[in-house]
């Protein structure tokens, strides 16, 4: 790790102001992803701003019947919350399908949204990588790409967003709440939060420098059967090859988002309208623009099969 200075802050405004004051600073909450990357010198902040004392660790009912999840709520506490288990089961299911118990105890809601790709070339500092070092090239294109993206990728980057939680949040139409260094707050629909790489893959999200996530809100419950199907190389503690978050209503309509295949949780409302016609119809529309590599072409059929499994599970 490169040396860094360290500071604790007690309000979101103080945190954002500190980030504006100190160049090359980072917020740290659970730290499970950031410290891993700092050890490898993929991230090398000169200053860390510890946001754990911001009291953003509550899950609160909202007047509209929805739920406000503080940025610092741990993955464990979010998955275990009785309201989440009852009304947003797909979110609980997605969270417990990821990482290990130890990591979920530390990982926070905001940090999980911001976790970086697990592309092996992003992690290997001896290899060119446009996300890690803009302009150096993409080693994954033409390299080992079995785990990587099939849609939404670009000629600069084919990395995936690796997480599970955000895939469920996408299906639930969550909203991300932030505060900027100038003190202004804004709300970002989860659909717009992660960005596609284009020719600037170094920016994973639309957050600006020093912008701090304060909460994620969920709209009021939509009912239906909640399912999260995840296919991976091990039965536990592995990133998804393909995952499907689904909320299916009794008439066969519903919503689905797919993880493990793109730089962001992948959802297409037009494809979703075909849910009553089955997995094949939906997948054909959803992945019409897919550009898989030779290594990961299997993911296209795996999406269809995982979706079919999710729909079968929802039917019971």
């Amino acid at each position: 790790m490169k040396p860094f200075t360290y500071q604790r802050v007690s309000t979101p405004a103080e945190a954002a102001a500190a980030a504006a004051r100190m160049a090359n600073s980072k917020f740290i909450a659970g730290g499970t992803n950031l410290l891993d990357l700092m050890k490898l010198q993929i991230e090398a902040p000169a200053h860390l701003i510890d946001v754990n004392a911001l009291k953003l660790d509550k899950i609160e009912d909202m007047p509209d019947g929805g739920l406000r999840i503080g940025a610092l709520v741990t993955n464990t506490n979010l998955a275990a919350d009785t309201r989440v288990r009852r009304d947003y089961g797909v979110l609980s299911r997605a969270i417990v399908a990821g990482a290990s118990g130890q990591l979920r105890n530390k990982a926070t809601t905001a940090g999980n949204l911001l976790q970086r790709t697990r592309c092996p070339y992003f992690y290997d500092t001896n290899q060119p990588c446009n996300k890690r070092q803009p302009g150096t090239g993409c080693s994954a294109i033409g390299g080992y790409s079995r785990q990587l993206g099939v849609i939404g990728t670009s000629d600069s980057c084919i990395a995936t967003y690796p997480g599970d939680m955000a895939v469920a949040m996408r299906v639930l139409d969550a909203t991300v709440h932030t505060v900027k260094p100038d003190g202004l707050t804004r709300t970002i629909p989860i659909a717009d939060f992660h960005r596609l790489p284009g020719d600037t893959p170094q920016a994973d999200t639309v957050l600006q420098t020093g912008e701090l996530i304060t909460a994620v809100t969920l709209p009021k419950p939509i009912g239906g059967t909640h399912v999260y199907q995840k296919v991976r190389d091990r039965a536990s503690y592995a990133f998804a090859l393909v995952s499907v978050a689904a909320v299916v209503q009794s008439d066969g309509s519903g919503r689905i988002a797919v993880g493990g295949i793109a730089p962001k949780p992948w959802r297409n409302e037009a494809a979703e309208a075909d849910l009553p016609r089955g997995a094949k119809a939906v997948t054909t529309k959803l992945l019409a623009d897919a550009r898989p590599t030779e290594d990961n072409a299997f993911k296209v059929s795996l999406v269809e099969r995982t979706l079919a499994a999710a729909l079968a599970e929802a039917k019971g």
Binding site: I28, G31, T32, L35, D36, L48, G101, L103, N105, K106
Partner: peptide, 9 residues
């Protein structure tokens, strides 16, 4: 609460 002490400052 159990955590990985290697990933915590």
């Amino acid at each position: 609460v159990r955590i990985n002490s290697c990933l915590s400052l």
